[in-house]
Design a protein around this nucleic acid. Sequence first.
DNA 1: AGCATTAGGAACCAATTGGTACAAAACACA
DNA 2: TGTGTTTTGTACCAATTGGTTCCTAATGCT
Lengths: 197, 197
Amino acid sequence: MARPREFNEDKALEGAMNVFWAHGYEGASLPELLKGMGLTRGSLYKAYKDKKSLFINILHRYDEAEVEKATQLLGDENLKDGLDRIDKLFASVLSAIEQEDYRGCLLCSAAAGPAHNDKQISEAVHGLLNKMKSGFEIALKDSSQHAELSKERLGQLADLLLTQYVGLRILSRSQASKETLKRSISSLMILLNSEKE
Amino acid sequence: MARPREFNEDKALEGAMNVFWAHGYEGASLPELLKGMGLTRGSLYKAYKDKKSLFINILHRYDEAEVEKATQLLGDENLKDGLDRIDKLFASVLSAIEQEDYRGCLLCSAAAGPAHNDKQISEAVHGLLNKMKSGFEIALKDSSQHAELSKERLGQLADLLLTQYVGLRILSRSQASKETLKRSISSLMILLNSEKE
DNA sequence: AGCATTAGGAACCAATTGGTACAAAACACA
DNA sequence: TGTGTTTTGTACCAATTGGTTCCTAATGCT
C-alpha cells in the first residue's frame, strides 16, 4: 500500500537503547540517538513521535532484553535453590564492572533521573521495578531457608533485595570500586544465608 | 582593597544546593540557579567560575550540611547502641518521603548522574560515599552485636549499609511507595539484629 | 580626593537543544 | 502505467544551553 520501512526496527531500537543506557535520558542528544539508530530526524519523529515516547519504547525493550533475563534467572528451576539464583544475579552485576562496563542499569538510572519528574516514565519504571521484586520473591520462595516464611516476610526480603540491586547498579555507574560492590554483595548473602527458622 | 560582595554567599550556596538537589546537575539550568541564588550571571561566573565548579562547591556544602548530619548521627554516643543510630538514620529517610520530600539525596543522584562521566565529580562523590561508609563502620563498632566482629567483616557490613542507603534514596527519588521503603528497611534491620556470634 | 580593584548587571554570543515542514523517493495496488 | 500512500532526508525553526564581554558602580587604601 505504500513505501516500506528501510531501516531495521530491531537494530534501530537496539541502538537507541545503547545510547540511552550509556548517557541516560537527558544526556542522550538527538544527534547521538540518530547516529546510534542509523536513521535521520524525519524517520525518527515519524516512527516514534518524540524523544520521550522513544524512551518509553526503549524501557519496554530493556524490559524484554534485560529485566526479562534477570527475572528468568531468578525463576530458573535448573538452579534448585533460589538463593543460588540471587547469588548469580548479583555476580552478574559484578562481572559487568569486571569487564569495565560501568553503564549500570538503564532502569535504575531512569529511576534516579526522569522518573522524578515525569509521570509516564515513573509509571513504566515502577512497573519494571515491581517485576524485579516479583522475581526476587519467586527466588526466595524456592530458597530452602526461606520457603517457610510468611508472605509478608518474603515481600519484605524481596524489597530489601530490590533496594540492594538498585544501590549496586547506581554505585556501579559511579564507578565505585569492584571491592566495594563485592563486599556489599557477600555481606548480604551471608546475612541471607544465616537466616534460620 | 576593593568592592565587597553584596550577596550573602551562604544564602546563595544554600539556594544553589536546593536547585541542584531538586533538579540534579544536568537538569539545573543557569536561569534556575541564578534565580535560586538571587544573583546575576556576572556575579555567578566571577565568584564560582562555571557550573561544574559551582556544583563541586555545592557537593562540599552538601557534605557540611547533610552528610555531616548523617555521620554525626551515626557517631552519636547518646545513642549507646550503634544499631539504634543506623535505625534512626534510615527512619529519617522514611520521614522525608512521609513529608512528601521526594528529592532523595543530592550525593546519590550525583553518583547516578554526572559521576559517570566526570572525573572531578566522581572523585568528590566517592569521597562523600566513603565518609558515609566510615559513619556506618563507627556505628557498627558501637553495636553490641557487632563490636566483636573482625575489621573485614565490619567493612563488609558497612558497604552493605552504604548500598542500601543509596538504593533507598534512589527509590525515594523515583517516588517508590513508602511501604516499599519501609519493608526494605525493616528487613535489613531484622537481618542485622539477628546476627549472633 | 583619587586610584586600584573588584562586584554587578545587561547585552551579547555561538552552539546546541528538541521538533517541524516539505519535497523527493519508493513502493503497493489497480 | 499511473495513482495514492508512506518513508526519507534535508532544510529549517525558535528556544534554550552554558559562557563571555564590557561598562558601570561601589568600595578600601593611600
